[in-house]
Simulated scan of single mutants.
Amino acid sequence: MTAFIKALLFVVVAEMGDKTQLLAMAMASKYKAKQVLIGVFIATIFNHALAVAVGSYLSAFIPMNNVKIVAAISFLIFGLWTLRGDKIDDENEKKAKFGPVVTVAIAFFIAEMGDKTQLMTVAISAQYQQPIYILMGTTVGMMVADSIGIIGGAWMCKNIPEVYIKWIAGVIFMFFGTLTLYGSVPASMLNAAYISLYLIIIAVLIYLAGVKFAYHDEVSNIVSAEKSNPQSEIK
């Protein structure tokens, strides 16, 4: 059950400001919310089942301590990725000819390939030998996060600055990454010199990802586009 809860919470956090959540908001301006959620569910099941299979396969060949170190580094990368944010490519916003549900499912499946939520699912699956619980947790997490994006996007944009959401989510990932790394590296590396070097590197990376090269106001841009679109109301 721990794997389920961890997978669910981490996916919800990872999806805040992620391109698939932004894509859900954009799709909701074209199609009914129910159709978008069904498409997201179908895409998530197939995409994350693939990720769980890959993670479970890797754990059979990699020592568990190394798995924890890789997972810790992955969480740090996810944190930096979250701070930087995502933007939607125009190609993802184009309508296809397969109907709303299939169009959304295809767009989400493609958008999730190599996305941080998929890579995080691989990392958690390698760390925990509970593929069913992890798949259930990541799927529920995606549905919760994208429902927030579809239904609460306008409210979030109005009441919570997007930068705050990104920084809170990013800090959570980096905290767990640091905590996991602390418990996994050799004791000889837990000294003042290595810790100071680690903190300096992390601080530089946080500045680059969260300030220098960050994407800003993507949620607000989508909400503004929805307001100008006569079909943008949640149906």
Rank of each mutant, 00 (worst) to 15 (best):
S74M: 15
Y182A: 06
G153C: 06
I134R: 08
G177H: 01
L22E: 06
L205C: 13
I69L: 15
G210W: 05
N65L: 13
Y57D: 00
T44K: 11
G177D: 06
L58Q: 07
A203N: 07
A14H: 03
P63C: 02
Y128K: 07
V54Q: 10
I165W: 02
G141P: 06
G170N: 03
V101D: 08
N47L: 08
E15T: 05
N159K: 15
I134P: 01
V104C: 11
Q127S: 11
I151Q: 02
Y57N: 03
T2Y: 03
I160M: 12
I195D: 03
P230M: 06
L179F: 13
F78N: 07
D89Q: 10
I160W: 06
G210P: 04
F175K: 01
G137W: 08
V211I: 11
M64Y: 12
G79D: 08
I110T: 08
K32Q: 13
A187C: 00
A169I: 01
F109W: 10
L37Y: 03
I88L: 15
K68M: 14
P100G: 08
I110C: 06
I62F: 04
A111R: 02
A187Y: 06
A123I: 05
V40T: 14
A96P: 00
A72N: 12
K227S: 07
A51Y: 05
I148R: 02
G79A: 00
I132Q: 05
A71L: 15
V12C: 10
A26F: 05
N229M: 04
I5Y: 08
I69K: 14
I69R: 09
K95E: 14
T117W: 12
L197M: 09
W167D: 01
G55A: 11
P230K: 14
Q118H: 15
F109I: 07
A51I: 04
V223I: 15
